[in-house]
Simulated scan of single mutants.
Amino acid sequence: MSTVTLESTITCSNCGYKTTEIMLTDSCQFFWECPKCGEVLKPKKGDCCVFCSYGDSPCPPIQKNKSCC
């Protein structure tokens, strides 16, 4: 069984700010507000959460090849 990564570095699509966040293991995060510019990110079409769209690691359910949300 492979290890699930619980941290993801998310990048703001508006200003490029990057920060490492801890991902939830039991739910998706639909919104993320950039602490630098205030932009509120939402998942891109076809993605379940902001980490799958803007993070360097997808959310834990996707890492486990399970349906998310």
Rank of each mutant, 00 (worst) to 15 (best):
V4G: 12
C59N: 10
P58N: 06
C34D: 12
C52T: 14
E39H: 12
G46L: 04
Y54N: 07
T11E: 11
E21P: 11
S27I: 03
E7D: 10
T3E: 11
K44V: 12
D56Y: 01
K64Y: 00
C28Y: 00
C15H: 03
G55F: 00
P35G: 10
C69V: 04
K44G: 12
P58I: 02
G55T: 07
L6G: 15
M1L: 09
P35L: 03
L41Y: 02
M23Y: 02
K18D: 11
K64T: 01
G16I: 03
C15D: 09
T9Y: 05
S2G: 14
V4M: 07
P60W: 02
E7G: 04
V50F: 02
T9H: 09
Q29M: 08
L6Y: 12
E39P: 00
C37G: 13
T20P: 12
T9F: 02
K44A: 14
I62N: 12
P60I: 03
P43T: 06
D47K: 03
S8M: 11
S67Y: 05
P61K: 07
F31C: 08
E33C: 10
V40M: 07
K66H: 09
C15M: 05
K66C: 08
C15T: 12
K36W: 00
C12V: 05
T25C: 13
E39A: 11
S67R: 10
M23T: 13
T19W: 01
Y54C: 11
C68H: 07
